[in-house]
Amino acid sequence: MSIYRDPEKIAAYLESWIKEKFAEAGASRAVLGISGGIDSALLAALLAKALGPENVTGVMMPCHSMPIDEEYAALLADAIKIKRAKVDLSAVYDAEVAALEAGGAKPDGLAAANIKPRLRMITLYSIAQQQGALVCGGGNKDEITMGYFTKYGDSGVDLLPLADLLKGEVWAVAEYLSVPREIINRPPTAALWEGQTDEAEMGLTYKELDAYIATGEASEAAKEKIERANKRSAHKRLFPPMAKLPDNL
C-alpha cells in the first residue's frame, strides 16, 4: 500500500483551501518566490488554479545565484502564465556582509548563507504590501519536520499550502498539474551555494524521510538523524516565547 495520497484529490483540496484562506483574509492576490525548484513550482501552479494566473506574481530573486535557476524560474512562469518580477539581491547581500564585517561580525558558513532567504522574505513582503497580496511559501512536510528552512527567511510567509505534503506527493501533484518536466526532474536544492542539494546536506533521501514521517519506519541511523533534527529545530515551528506577568505583580 502506498504511503502517498491521490494527487488529484490533493490538488482539489488545496485549491479549495487556498480560496478559503484568501477569502478569510479579504485578499485576491498572491506573491511567492520562484527559484526554479519543484516546491515553488507546485505552489505557483496551485495558486494560479485557485486565484487565476493574473493574480499571482512569481518573484525571481537572484543573489549570486547560478543563471540556470533563473532560467528554470522563467520557464515555470511562462508555462503557467503567472506574472513575474525580478529583483537582484546580490548587491544588497554584499552590502549587508560588508556592514557586518565593518562591525566586527563578518558572517561565514550558514550565517552568511541564511542572509539570502531573509533578504528574499523582506523583498516578498515589500511587493505584497504594495499589491495588497498575501505571501505564500512552498515549505513541505519533510522540510518542516527536519527544520530544513531558514527561520524568518523562507518560513516568513502568510500561508504554507504544501505544509502537509510529503516530498513524494509534491512530485506527484506537480506532475498531475503539468509542471514542466525539466523542473520535476531537477535535484531538490535550496541553492544556498553552488552544488548544494537538499539530500546531501541532510544526509537523508526524501524517500527515507517520507517513509519515516508516514509510517515511523526507517533504519536506526535515519531515525536518529530525523529525530535529532526535529528536536533541535523545534523553536523554528513555534511562535517566540512571550513573557506573561503574574496577576499579583
Results as ranks from 00 to 15, higher is better:
residue 64 H to L: 12
residue 91 A to W: 10
residue 157 V to S: 01
residue 180 P to K: 00
residue 151 K to W: 02
residue 248 N to E: 14
residue 59 V to Y: 10
residue 187 P to K: 11
residue 65 S to D: 14
residue 63 C to N: 05
residue 175 E to C: 00
residue 140 N to I: 00
residue 116 K to S: 04
residue 69 D to C: 09
residue 108 D to N: 14
residue 33 G to M: 10
residue 63 C to K: 00
residue 48 A to E: 09
residue 51 L to F: 08
residue 130 Q to M: 13
residue 30 A to D: 12
residue 62 P to E: 05
residue 184 I to P: 02
residue 210 D to G: 10
residue 180 P to N: 06
residue 185 N to S: 15
residue 164 D to K: 10
residue 20 E to M: 09
residue 25 A to P: 07
residue 81 K to S: 12
residue 221 A to I: 15
residue 167 K to D: 07
residue 186 R to I: 12
residue 39 D to M: 02
residue 135 V to K: 00
residue 232 R to W: 09
residue 67 P to W: 11
residue 26 G to C: 13
residue 5 R to Y: 07
residue 38 I to S: 11
residue 119 L to C: 05
residue 75 L to G: 04
residue 165 L to I: 00
residue 72 Y to W: 11
residue 17 W to S: 01
residue 61 M to G: 13
residue 144 I to K: 01
residue 97 V to Y: 13
residue 122 I to E: 05
residue 24 E to V: 12
residue 44 A to Q: 07
residue 106 K to W: 05
residue 117 P to H: 06
residue 225 K to W: 12
residue 187 P to H: 11
residue 162 L to A: 01
residue 94 D to C: 04
residue 157 V to P: 00
residue 201 E to H: 02
residue 177 L to F: 07
residue 59 V to E: 08
residue 75 L to R: 15
residue 59 V to N: 09
residue 87 V to G: 05
residue 14 L to C: 07
residue 240 P to F: 08
residue 217 E to L: 13
residue 243 A to M: 11
residue 20 E to Q: 13
residue 16 S to T: 11
residue 88 D to P: 05
residue 119 L to M: 10
residue 59 V to C: 08
residue 100 L to R: 15
residue 168 G to C: 05
residue 240 P to K: 01
residue 36 G to S: 12
residue 208 E to S: 06
residue 245 L to G: 10
residue 61 M to F: 13
residue 16 S to H: 08
residue 153 G to W: 01
residue 151 K to L: 04
residue 28 S to A: 14
residue 232 R to D: 15
residue 202 M to R: 11
residue 42 L to K: 14
residue 21 K to P: 01
residue 122 I to R: 08
residue 147 G to C: 08
residue 216 G to Q: 05
residue 73 A to S: 14
residue 208 E to W: 04
residue 135 V to P: 01
residue 206 Y to N: 06
residue 210 D to S: 08
residue 71 E to D: 11
residue 65 S to C: 12
residue 169 E to T: 03
residue 92 V to F: 05
residue 12 A to I: 07
residue 186 R to H: 11
residue 200 A to C: 03
residue 109 G to M: 12
residue 232 R to F: 13
residue 167 K to V: 07
residue 2 S to E: 10
residue 86 K to M: 08
residue 68 I to Q: 15
residue 62 P to K: 01
residue 162 L to Q: 01
residue 242 M to R: 13
residue 37 G to M: 07
residue 191 A to K: 13
residue 212 Y to D: 07
